[in-house]
């Protein structure tokens, strides 16, 4: 990783935390939809990033979000889990496509379909852990399930919009 990439990722880390706690946590779309777009940081770390950096930075990201939402440990648990399984998902999904060394897992370097599958899997896992852990019981299973689906959809839409805003796909 060169210096430029490090700076971009550090900036993205803080920008996403502020976006999450100051804007998205305050938005009310009924009680079901709470988008957690900060996971984009974990999704977009370069493929070649050493595993321990991915894990530690995801932990710090989760803990920072927790500090602002009074849910100490909740976001950290979910973030560290998706940071751990991220390399496996990339490997499975990249088996068919040519592997671009050092690249970001973004639409620009892969296809839209690839990125959607990749983001969908990780966001779904992250949101499921988050919402079920927050309730800590299965008694409101169906309600929580709806919350997971609705919030994951909202998160994905925001992530895709963000991708097209900052990275023009190569045609």
């Amino acid at each position: 990783m060169n210096n430029n990439l490090i700076i971009i990722n550090v900036l993205r880390f803080f920008a996403l935390i502020l976006l999450q706690v100051l804007v998205l946590n305050n938005i009310q779309f009924s009680g079901y939809i709470n988008p957690y777009v900060y996971v984009l940081f974990i999704l977009m770390l370069p493929v070649q990033t050493p595993g321990w950096i991915v894990l530690i930075s995801s932990f710090l990201l989760g803990i920072s979000i927790d500090m602002f939402s009074d849910s100490l440990g909740l976001h950290a648990t979910a973030s560290v889990l998706i940071a751990f399984i991220r390399p496996n998902i990339i490997n499975i999904l990249s088996a068919k496509e040519a592997f671009v060394a050092g690249a970001y897992p973004v639409i620009k370097y892969y296809s839209l379909k690839w990125f959607l599958t990749y983001a969908l899997i990780l966001v779904l896992i992250h949101h499921s852990i988050l919402f079920y852990l927050e309730i800590f019981a299965f008694r409101e299973f169906f309600h929580t399930f709806l919350q997971v689906i609705a919030s994951s959809t909202a998160t994905l839409i925001l992530i895709i919009i963000g991708q097209y805003m900052f990275y023009k796909p190569i045609k």
Binding site: L55, L72, G73, L74, A76, T77, V80, F84, F136
Partner: peptide, 21 residues
Amino acid sequence: NLFFLFLLLEVISFTLFIENS
């Protein structure tokens, strides 16, 4: 080592979560 780092971080997070709640 990666797996153990992962376990360590998860245990820290989860313990914080349980203790805090």
